[in-house]
Each structure stands twice: as C-alpha cells, then as structure tokens.
C-alpha cells in the first residue's frame, strides 16, 4: 500500500558521461531539481539546495562513482541539521544502453522520517481546527496539480 522506497527511470539519448554532468553539476542541478544548488562533490560533501518558494535545504553527498552512481541524503526539513529520521536517500544509477543511458532514481527512507521534539510538541498542542485548515490547503494544492 505505502512503500518505503520509490523507483523511477528514463532512457536518455546521450552517453553516461554527459548525463553524469547534468546530474551532478550545480548549474544543471539548479535546472532540474532546485532553483539554486551548491555541491561539494565527494562522499560526505555538503549540498545546499534552495527553492525560492520553500527555502534552503541541506543535503549530504553519499556516493560519487562517475559516471555510474551518485547518491545523496536529502533533508526534508528546513533549518535542520543533518540527522537520522529527517532525510531520505536519493540514489541515481547510470547504465549504458546502446549509445544512450538508462537513468534510474531510487528514493528511500520514508519509513524512517520522524519528528523532531519540537514538532512532536507542536502536534500534541495542535487543535483539530488547525488540521482542517492545513488539510484544505493541501487538498487545494493537490487538486491543482491533478488538473495541470
């Protein structure tokens, strides 16, 4: 019903080294992922991902194996230090296919996403009215997405 990991893939008519540059270079990442990106491309290296609408999020490079595997741990909370339970792992795998590349992305760790103590306190205090308002906002957003 609800998986802990999701997987998507696409076949690209360009060799793995070209796809690798698109997937890992900040100026490209700022086109396909966030609005701005800073990447220290080595295992343990810091990433800063900024969405103008949502703010800046930290990520940490996990695997750099050009042009095969790029993985990073993506913090799903703003203003949070890297830590367990607040990030998902994104693994991008490039496989040569003919003259092109098969690119697969796996995002995992949804089950481990948990709550900071501050968030737990906030939820404990939250009244049902607060839930309803926020639910309506999200529903409106989801409906908008479905129409486009």
């Amino acid at each position: 019903m609800v998986p802990d990991r999701i997987s998507r893939e696409v076949v690209i008519d360009a060799p793995p080294d070209v796809v690798w540059s698109i997937v890992t270079e900040p100026r490209h990442v700022a086109r396909w992922f966030s609005d701005e990106a800073e990447i220290d491309l080595r295992p343990g290296g810091a990433m800063l991902l900024t969405w103008h609408r949502h703010g800046t999020f930290q990520a940490r490079v996990e695997t750099v194996d050009p042009p095969h595997t790029f993985a990073f741990r993506w913090l799903r909370r703003e203003h949070n230090e890297p830590g367990e339970g607040t990030s998902t792992l994104v693994e991008m795998t490039l496989t040569r296919e003919g003259s092109g590349t098969r690119l697969r992305v796996i995002e995992s760790g949804f089950q481990q996403l948990s709550w900071t103590e501050e968030e737990q306190a906030r939820y404990a205090d939250e009244n049902s009215e607060g839930w309803v308002v926020e639910l309506d906002e999200l529903r409106a957003y989801a409906d908008g997405l479905e129409r486009t």
Binding site: I6, R8, I12, I22, H28, V105, L145
Partner: peptide, 19 residues
C-alpha cells in the same frame, strides 16, 4: 512520483541538448 518523473524528463532534455 510525479515530481521525479518531471525531474527525469528535465534531465533527459538537458542531457540530449548538451549531447
């Protein structure tokens, strides 16, 4: 899932244009 499909489509476009 939809967001990843869109990101992969953009990567495909960028890579093929670059190539």
């Amino acid at each position: 899932l939809d967001q990843w499909d869109q990101r992969l489509a953009t990567i495909k476009h960028l890579a093929e244009t670059e190539h």
